[in-house]
Computed example of a mutant assay.
Amino acid sequence: MSPTDELIPMLKKLRLSGVLQSLQLRTQQAVDDNLSHSEFLYRLLGDEVERRDSKQLSQRVRRASFEHARTLEDFDFHFNASVPKAKVLELGTCSFLERHDNVLIVGPTGVGKSHLAQALGHRACRAGFSALYVGAHEMLMQLRAARGEGSYDKRLLRFTSPDLLIIDDLGLRGLTQDEPMDLYEVVRQRYERRSTVITSNRSIKEWPPLFGDPLMASAAMDRLLHHAHVLVIECWRSSRSAGFWSSTRSSRSAGFGSSAGAGIESSQCKTASLLPRLRGAERGRWAAESSGDAQLFLALRCARDSSAMRLR
């Protein structure tokens, strides 16, 4: 029996069986480089620490239940000038988690709120914090079901125990029945104990009516806004329709000028969520008509006519 074979049961007993993955390589390296015993041991255990850190990160990311694999490195800060890049990168250091601060991200559909929220959650996982991502409707639905099953306290603990809770799309619909109380309870139990990130299409001043009761709303908002970082992202251009805008801007050289292109870029963002349902110039025409932008409508009509002539 070789010395390595004798090591296996000992390493397993010490829960260091992962050392076996690099033991042979490090042993050969120690011989070739004439490493000291302490240097050999340092490198061997360093491999095990790195392996465990990687495994724990994977577990934290999996338990966080992110909807998509989003990171700050993937976020395009150029598509929307209103995104406070310096503030976002500061939050990416995760120092707000150590202070148990909240982050509230508000803005119209398609400006990157969910991406930023999940990216902060991923940063938290990388920094060793536990995180959980959940849609507001899904969280409240789970709590309502748990109340009926008699497991409310256990289910509530799922949302109050993570170091970082990310609640996406708060206020997308009104709160009914016990949902205002459930939301308040989550906010109350996390206050100054854990950090919460909330995204919403509604401005902060529109949140209190969601609770239905002025006293409950006041108590909840006081806890949410105390030690909070509020990111207000204005609608300069929707990330989901960025491809449409870039292709439209390229048609400036086709004959309708830079002023028309500027009008396209500044069109009303309320149409952004419906644009993917339409195609080509018809999609832009619908956006222009619904927003009342005559200049935009004229430019897009010219583009459509030019396309039709080329097809002929």
Rank of each mutant, 00 (worst) to 15 (best):
G174A: 14
L140E: 05
T176W: 07
V83D: 02
H78V: 03
G110T: 01
D101E: 14
L175N: 05
F129L: 04
V103T: 11
R173E: 14
D182A: 12
P108F: 00
Q118H: 02
E138S: 05
Q177W: 07
Y152S: 02
G174I: 05
R158C: 00
T160V: 14
L175R: 02
G150H: 02
G128D: 01
V88P: 00
K113W: 08
D76I: 05
D74H: 11
D178K: 13
P162I: 02
E98Y: 07
G107F: 03
G121I: 05
G171D: 07
V103A: 04
G148K: 15
N102L: 08
G150L: 03
L165S: 04
G135D: 07
R188M: 07
E185G: 06
L157D: 11
S114Y: 03
S161D: 12
Y191N: 13
V197W: 12
Q118G: 02
E179G: 11
A86S: 13
M139N: 01
L165G: 05
L143I: 12
I166E: 04
E192F: 01
S114Q: 02
A146Y: 03
T160I: 14
N102S: 12
F75D: 09
G150N: 05
I105W: 07
Y133Q: 05
H100W: 08
V197S: 07
L157I: 00
Q189L: 15
H137L: 10
R193H: 15
F96Q: 10
Q177C: 08
Q177Y: 10
L120E: 07
G107I: 04
V106T: 13
P180H: 08
L140K: 01
L97C: 12
C94L: 07
T93A: 12
Q177E: 14
G174D: 15
C125L: 09
V197Q: 04
L120W: 06
L89A: 00
R126Q: 15
T109R: 10
V88L: 10
G135H: 06
T109A: 14
T93V: 09
T176F: 11
A117C: 08
R193F: 06
G121K: 11
Y191P: 09
E149D: 13
A119Q: 10
H115Q: 10
T196Y: 07
L156A: 00
R173L: 06
H78W: 00
E185R: 13
L170C: 13
R193D: 04
A86G: 01
L89C: 06
N102D: 11
P84Y: 11
D182I: 02
L132A: 12
Y184D: 07
P180K: 01
V134N: 04
E73P: 01
V88Y: 02
D101H: 10
S95A: 11
N102Q: 03
Y184S: 14
N102M: 10
F77Q: 13
A136L: 08
H137Y: 13
Q177N: 12
Y152Q: 07
F75M: 08
M141E: 12
T93W: 09
L91A: 10
T196K: 09
R126S: 13
I166W: 06
K85D: 00
G148C: 09
L164A: 07
T109C: 10
F159R: 09
H78G: 04
Y191F: 15
Y133L: 08
I167Q: 06
K113P: 10
L183M: 15
N80R: 06
E192N: 12
K87F: 00
S130F: 00
